[in-house]
Amino acid sequence: DLSALRVEEVQNVINAMQKILECPICLELIKEPVSTKCDHIFCKFCMLKLLNQKKGPSQCPLCKNDITKRSLQESTRFSQLVEELLKIICAFQLDTGLEYANSYNFAKKENNSPEHLKDEVSIIQSMGYRNRAKRLLQSEPENPSLQETSLSVQLSNLGTVRTLRTKQRIQPQRTSVYIELGSDSSEDTVNKATYCSVGDQELLQITPQGTRDEISLDSAKKAACEFSETDVTNTEHHQPSNNDLNTTEKRAAERHPEKYQGSSVSNLHVEPCGTNTHASSLQHENSSLLLTKDRMNVEKAEF
């Protein structure tokens, strides 16, 4: 173990290094160091905050020279020094078990990766560091076993998940096959086929009936047209017969005018059967003409 005197000496050296690497504005270890034209180094955030307070150039807090945003430059070497100082402080805390008085939040800088452990060898070769390295080497064999167990647990979990997924996939297939086998029997399929065939026959029977009705309507229309044509021909046949009657009536009127007047009046009210309204109107006109002729003949006879 380190003596108290040596611990104090190391602590004083760390404090001196820390004062050199402090920012003059925030009085902390410089984060993202930036250098000016006057070779003074500050935190990048502190300098941008200072420049944004005034429009135009501002003055350096140490030498009062003008500073602009374009004049600022990043210093990589200074950032490396800060990183190495942080590593020294971490090693000091691990070796002594004491917390550094002016320690900052170094938890963000710590890294437990194997590459980081290899890099620590180049920091300080001390008894405390050696003991700590031995402890780490002793704890390393235990870690692979834990990793193997965790991997086995994960693989077993994956296997159970896969088996569950396969079961879920197989179950719908089985149910679907069961439904297909038990849903419709052979008799049901035959009945469905016969039902479809009967429906098709009914459709075939319905369509000819409609065509037959249309044919019957067409035949009825044709018969009505033929009947009207026969009526017209009958009226045409009746007209010459009426003319013959008129000639006979004229002759009778010349011989017996008194008797014919009474008979002509009675004939006005008689309509021949089986004739249309057109034929009756023609008869009325003929009878009126005959009456006028008879009157003329009677007057001539009187004179």
Rank of each mutant, 00 (worst) to 15 (best):
N297V: 15
V232Y: 14
I41E: 02
A224K: 09
T68C: 09
S126T: 14
E83P: 15
L48M: 05
S219F: 11
Y104H: 13
V13A: 07
S35P: 01
Y129F: 06
N157A: 12
N276G: 11
P141V: 10
D39N: 06
L164R: 09
E8S: 09
Q59G: 05
K250M: 03
H284F: 02
V161K: 09
H116N: 10
E258G: 10
Q138L: 11
P208I: 02
C273D: 13
C225N: 03
P33G: 08
K55Q: 03
T149S: 10
S150A: 09
S185Y: 07
F303L: 15
E9A: 09
L98R: 10
H40M: 00
A16F: 00
L136V: 12
D244R: 12
H256A: 13
D244E: 02
H278A: 03
Q201R: 10
E258C: 09
R130K: 11
E258P: 08
Q93C: 02
E258H: 10
S185H: 03
T36A: 01
P141N: 07
L94N: 00
N52Y: 02
K221N: 14
E271I: 07
E32Q: 03
L50D: 00
V161N: 06
R162A: 08
G128A: 14
K55D: 10
C90V: 11
S266F: 06
F45I: 13
L146A: 04
K259A: 06
R255C: 12
Q11I: 03
Y129H: 13
Y195A: 10
D119Y: 02
Q59K: 03
H256V: 13
Q154N: 05
G262Q: 04
F42G: 00
A220V: 10
C26D: 01
T163K: 07
P33E: 02
E28S: 03
S156H: 08
S156W: 02
I30V: 15
R130M: 10
N276M: 06
L27M: 04
D95P: 02
G262P: 07
E28F: 01
L151V: 11
C90G: 12
K87I: 03
T207D: 15
Q154H: 05
K31F: 03
S216F: 04
K222Q: 05
D188T: 13
S216P: 03
P33Q: 03
L29R: 02
K19V: 01
K87G: 10
S219L: 02
T160E: 14
L51N: 01
L2F: 02
K31P: 05
C43D: 01
